[in-house]
Design a protein around this nucleic acid. Sequence first.
DNA 1: CTGCTTTTTCAGAGATGTTTCAGCCGCTGG
DNA 2: CCAGCGGCTGAAACATCTCTGAAAAAGCAG
Lengths: 224, 224
Amino acid sequence: MKILIIEDDKLLAESLQTLLELKGFEVEVVYDGEDGAEYAETGVYDLLIMDVMMPKLGGYQVARQVRTHRVTTPILMLTAKGEVQDRIEGLNAGADYYLTKPFDNMELLACINALLRRQGDQVDVLRYGNTALDLTGYVLSTEESSIRLSKKEFDVMRRLMQYQGRSIRKDVLLVQVWGYESNATENNVEAYVGFLRKKLKSIGSDLRIESIRLLGYHLEVVKP
Amino acid sequence: MKILIIEDDKLLAESLQTLLELKGFEVEVVYDGEDGAEYAETGVYDLLIMDVMMPKLGGYQVARQVRTHRVTTPILMLTAKGEVQDRIEGLNAGADYYLTKPFDNMELLACINALLRRQGDQVDVLRYGNTALDLTGYVLSTEESSIRLSKKEFDVMRRLMQYQGRSIRKDVLLVQVWGYESNATENNVEAYVGFLRKKLKSIGSDLRIESIRLLGYHLEVVKP
DNA sequence: CTGCTTTTTCAGAGATGTTTCAGCCGCTGG
DNA sequence: CCAGCGGCTGAAACATCTCTGAAAAAGCAG
């Protein structure tokens, strides 16, 4: 579970980082809005936490920009500005929650959980069609049978299922699963899609991974 | 868009109802937690707004119960209890947002929008006539059927639809889709317009790509 | 170290999208 | 009425992308 913190107050940023890492999140920190927007737009994070007042690009602008680029990662806005007007502006800019400083650590964690829960990550099975993916054990199953997935197979499958009908670009999938420092190529994605198609068929799933040339993939329930 | 309000203060409930109906939502109101939980569990609502302190069953219990029954409708908690402890408890019980009374109407609406936005109800489509172009999946569809487009077909179609009735010059289209450096000719555009006309007809679209001599094209809805 | 699983790499086959081109059609203007 | 231009279309050639199977490499547990 990856979280990006965009916060210019280094002290606060660090304490947040420590807190979240303690809770088992993978955390990255950047110190201004411009970097923030750039990182956030990769779409590899599960949550963005950002300050409103920052150098170069304010939180509202970052949120707007990120949303304009069709990135749907939940945004938690964190700020000293507590006026109603500010809260409204933040929410309308694309934030999902507005928390006023000073805030309690436990409250922050509760918010994060609420946001991630909604993201559908907190559930322990994803279902689509006649098929279920057990998030705790890397097992893919239908009524009639089930099969183990390797970690990478699982990662790819999870993303595909999370998109429920919409299509995913191959390069996005690549960066989400392999990270962007990796030297894996899109052919790796193709290989894993191949593995998954085989396994889906072997358990009699009604799911089909359609490919869309020059775009990516699309998980589909095929009517019998 | 259906909203359920669970609130025992009839005055407040009514003013909320009026406000939301004015904004075009379909609103139902119940006055205690027991009814609230029962209604909410049907899962037909797009959003639940509930008070914390209520007769029979408190807001936290309602939230917990609803979530236990695997209903994922977003919950907005509305309450006079503003203590950190309360907010944490609310969020942990399954709420998605915690708003403290008294609140501003505009802020409430901003929250509601944020929650519904996340609900994934916003899809990326361009519409014109009876026809929709799915921007994420290169799919062109009408009520009765749909068909996949290739990337270039999609690019051309998107431009045509974006111009909504105004006409586009062929050379502009050429540059927009193939880029400056390309050695494609206007005949390429013509070829793709041909492909698109075929596909539009095949799905029973009421859109027609008219050509305008020496100028370019023009997307038109043709009345039956 | 050994044997097993997972992940990566690679190259050829196959599928699909794109471009090209020639011929046809119809409009336009002399 | 006819020549000429712009626009349309189908077929073929071409260019790319995607898939696949096999093999190499990397991890991992015993």
